[in-house]
Design a protein around this nucleic acid. Structure first.
Lengths: 170, 170
DNA sequence: GTCCCCATGTAAAAAGTTACATGATTGT
DNA sequence: ACAATCATGTAACTTTTTACATGGGGAC
């Protein structure tokens, strides 16, 4: 199966968050927090917006003349919602991305997302602990692959911290 | 300036870690911890190894006939060392990657890397706290962009945890 | 007047993924 | 025998980056 495109959903989510955005504003958005888990350059953004408009996901708000502002159409809103509801997969950025697109604290998707992520992270946590046990069986192994050992123990601590945060939020 | 290629250095580092690796083994390595911060498919790996051999970074260990095993040449070792010494830039995977390639606990690069990363992370931490103050000035802003608020506070907590770990290791 | 930011667009190149291909070996 | 894994390679395609291009507006 072909890899799922994420960019158009990201643009849709960003426009939806702010009600209305121009291509330029979207490129600026990637300098903020969302840039920590997704990025696109203006040469990707403009053609993508044109495609999305042609497909009826967005329409341009004609009220302005210096910039082309886009707003999410009803169809786009439906498409975004369906995408938000798709289960998380192995792409680790999807959780943050989808979370970022939730505007309202009472949105039922919020709890669902966190619950899903919690399952995935606990599995990863267990897997990493197994790895630690199987790869570093004695001190000599640690001594001879110290960077690997640090990365692995860091990953475990990171998961632990993340899991705790997720549980706090539930 | 053109973007720096990382793949050949990753392959060099992986081969260096294990002394000798085949293309197939490298593709398997990406299923382990290193896959958390870098990945390449076999269709990237094999041609890249051929280029690296042509450039004298690696040579193939003829002692085997079922697989082509590569070993790092003296020149490759020098190139890897120089790359390891280059300062960290805005690519956040570089720290983990380079750390993974440090075999010996007493390697002076280890302390240097952690110190560099600590500077970068503290800057990021301060920046994120500023963002929190400027973006979420009142409860209404939090209420209307709850996902964004969560992502930002999560990022701050993640940095805090990471900084603490880095300081522990120094 | 020159530099920087706003604003949009296309073209060319590089990087990365998926699909197509082939043959050996190992396990059941 | 059949399936799975080992092992390598190329071709086609998609995604992303960098470079090229243009024009308006405000600051100094």
């Amino acid at each position: 199966m072909p890899k799922k495109r994420i960019l158009p959903y990201v643009l849709l989510g960003l426009i939806n968050n702010k009600e209305r955005l121009s291509g330029y504003q979207i490129s600026q958005e990637f300098k903020n927090e969302v840039g920590d888990f997704w990025h696109a350059s203006h040469s990707q953004i403009y053609p993508e917006l044109a495609r999305m408009k042609a497909d009826g996901w967005v329409s341009d708000d004609e009220s302005d003349n210096k910039s082309t502002y886009y707003i999410v159409t009803d169809q786009g809103s439906e498409i975004l919602r369906n995408w938000m509801r798709e289960p998380l997969d192995d792409n680790e950025e999807l959780f943050s991305l989808k979370l970022y697109f939730i505007k309202d604290k009472s949105d039922p998707l919020l709890k669902d997302l966190i619950t899903q992520e919690l399952v995935l992270r606990k599995l990863k946590y267990q897997y990493l602990q197994e790895r630690l046990k199987t790869v570093f069986t004695d001190d000599k192994k640690i001594k001879n692959n110290f960077g690997h050992y640090l990365i692995l123990t860091r990953a475990i601590e990171r998961e632990r911290n993340h899991i705790q945060w997720l549980e706090d939020k539930l």
